[in-house]
Simulated assay, not measured.
Amino acid sequence: MAVGLGAPSRSFAAGSGGGGGGGGAGRRKKKVFLHSVPTRCLIQCRTREPATKVYAVSDLHTDYSENMAWVRGLSIDSYASSALIVAGDVAETRENFAATMKLLKDRFRRVFFVPGNHDLWLRKEKGLFLHSLEKLNALLDVCRELGVETSPAVVGDVGIIPLYSWYHQSFDKEKDVSGIRIPSIDTVCKDFYACKWRQELSPKDTSLAICFDSMNEVHRDSIEQIQQNALHIITFSHFVPRQDLCPEKRMLFYPNLPKIIGSDLLEERLRLIHGANGQPSACHVFGHTHFSWDVELDGIRYVQAPLAYPRERKRRMNGGAEWLPFCIYDGALTARLTSCRWSEYYTLNKRDPNNIDLAPWVARFYQQQR
């Protein structure tokens, strides 16, 4: 479990072949870059823009008509001088992705994006892309055409840093739930067949996590400029940087969820940016699990503001839609959210990953499956 980690275990990169290479030093030497990841230099950080609000949202999933209607319903005027962080999972198809990002760019002065897993699905693309990295390049091209930003930049006094990432199953360090029949990850996680990868990459080892993490290296100089000049820094990713940003396994209808949500490399990288002990101005926005979340851990504030699926909003799993997009910055980091059921729960209750006694609602669910 990733509790208070400043750096992941050195055993992370162990393996050979498609499994992610050798140890930490070997991993850092081998860099994987996509030709179309933006490489333009950061505009001089000392050239300040007027103070602006920064909003955050993730998991728009606009392939659902209700979610696309929500985006269309955002005010044309209210956000005209503001920036928006979009922490992945915009849409499954390139067509819907482009339509969604255009709507957002029409409403916000600046829009920032990192890809999520659904953005790279190919099952409805009719053979347009050979693999998911090719689709990623196409989505980045769309972003450039629309003026959506996928590189670090400064907005007023705040630095905004997108972090590319992918999950790996060894991210899960907690005790597994036993005594019930849990479907396999391959069965439950559509990524395993909706995404396609080059031969050397696999979702079953660390190779994808390393590949996506290496994409951040091209922005090293830009990040250093931001660290030197910005008064506040907000990093963001789609995937989860530490396991204690997800409910314990006994609380989950799918207890193996932590194996497909996060990356140790992501926490390591954002700690390099914000500092091992964090700082009052440090914030990281993430997505993917659809649980609204707002908590400070080891000096960094972690926030998830998901639109999620329509059925989840009806159950208010994400806290509803009234508070979205969430204003995370307005001259300083804004007050903590009050609509985050799970992060509030763990503020009041100590996390106990060794307790694998199923929560009542989970126990009832599996009893019904028999």
Rank of each mutant, 00 (worst) to 15 (best):
I180M: 10
R123D: 14
C327I: 00
V3I: 13
D191V: 14
G156V: 03
E344L: 14
E134H: 15
R28T: 02
F12S: 12
E296V: 13
G17D: 10
L74W: 06
R341I: 10
T47S: 11
R27T: 09
S292E: 04
A308R: 02
G287Q: 06
R311Y: 15
L257S: 14
T62L: 05
H219P: 00
W166L: 02
G88F: 07
S343V: 07
L140A: 03
E174L: 05
I210P: 00
V188F: 13
Y55C: 01
A230E: 00
F171H: 00
R269W: 06
M1R: 13
Q228G: 00
A363R: 10
F33W: 08
A230D: 03
D157T: 04
I160Q: 02
K314D: 13
K173G: 12
S170D: 09
L5Y: 12
A332Q: 14
V285K: 00
P255L: 02
L140F: 11
L42Q: 01
R109G: 10
S36Y: 08
D89Q: 01
T150C: 11
P280R: 05
A332Y: 12
A359V: 07
R123S: 15
G287K: 06
D106R: 05
S58E: 02
M215S: 03
M251I: 06
I233M: 04
S78Q: 12
K350D: 15
F129W: 11
V177N: 04
